[in-house]
Amino acid sequence: MTTVADRTGEVLDRFGSIDVWVNNVGVGAVGYFWDIPIEDHARLVDVNLKGLIYGAHAALRVFRSQGGRGTLVNVGSVDSAVPIALQNTYAATKAAVRSLGHSLSEELRMAGDDDIKVGTIMPWAVDTPWWVRPGQHGCLRRHPRTDGRRGLPLTRFDGVGNCHRLGRR
């Protein structure tokens, strides 16, 4: 299994430095909290929060080692500010993403690393397979009373910092 440290080393070997690191991690489980198996809740925390922590840790170590410069972009979710029923653990992990970003920014300020920036983008709904086949990806379990949030406006993040409105499905 490839680790974040392995990937970081490969990127540094190839490019020599890292200027921008995007932490875009996320899985979900849709349904009543008590109906979702506890193992699925644990997987959400493992991927959505721990995965982001591994990435942020690697990125900040690199940024500090290359003279204290770089930008860390964490992908959160609007669900962290406006929790949506049937996605409670997902919303909780994305709230942690938002909080971690604020805390890291403050720590960097305290350490005098003013040229390392941390930001969190909070899209509403991103155009991924989640919306097309929600029961077939990772631990995602589609609750019979949900419709995969069809009808909500979707956003596609192109990985370069641009969000595109896709309209309703």
Rank of each mutant, 00 (worst) to 15 (best):
T3P: 02
A5V: 00
D6Y: 00
E10H: 04
V11E: 00
V11T: 04
V11Q: 01
S17M: 00
V22A: 01
N23C: 05
N23R: 01
N24P: 01
V27F: 01
A29F: 01
A29Q: 03
V30N: 06
D40T: 04
L44T: 07
L44G: 08
D46C: 06
K50Y: 11
Y54H: 14
Y54W: 14
Y54D: 15
A56L: 09
A59H: 09
R61V: 14
F63S: 11
R64A: 15
G67F: 08
G67E: 09
G68W: 08
G70T: 11
L72R: 05
V73D: 08
V73S: 09
N74A: 08
N74K: 05
S80T: 07
S80C: 14
V82C: 12
P83M: 12
A85E: 14
L86T: 13
L86E: 10
Q87I: 14
Q87F: 11
Q87Y: 12
Q87N: 15
A91S: 15
T93A: 07
T93C: 11
A95E: 11
A95D: 12
A95M: 13
R98K: 14
E107H: 03
M110Q: 09
G112I: 03
D113N: 08
D113Q: 13
K117W: 02
V118Q: 02
G119N: 02
M122Y: 02
P123R: 04
P123S: 06
W124C: 00
V126G: 01
D127G: 03
W130A: 07
W130S: 05
P134Y: 03
H137W: 13
H137S: 11
L140G: 09
R142G: 07
R142S: 12
D147L: 05
G148C: 05
G148Q: 04
R149K: 10
R149N: 12
G151R: 06
L154Q: 10
T155P: 03
R156V: 12
F157D: 12
D158L: 09
D158M: 10
V160F: 11
V160R: 14
N162W: 06
C163F: 15
R165G: 08
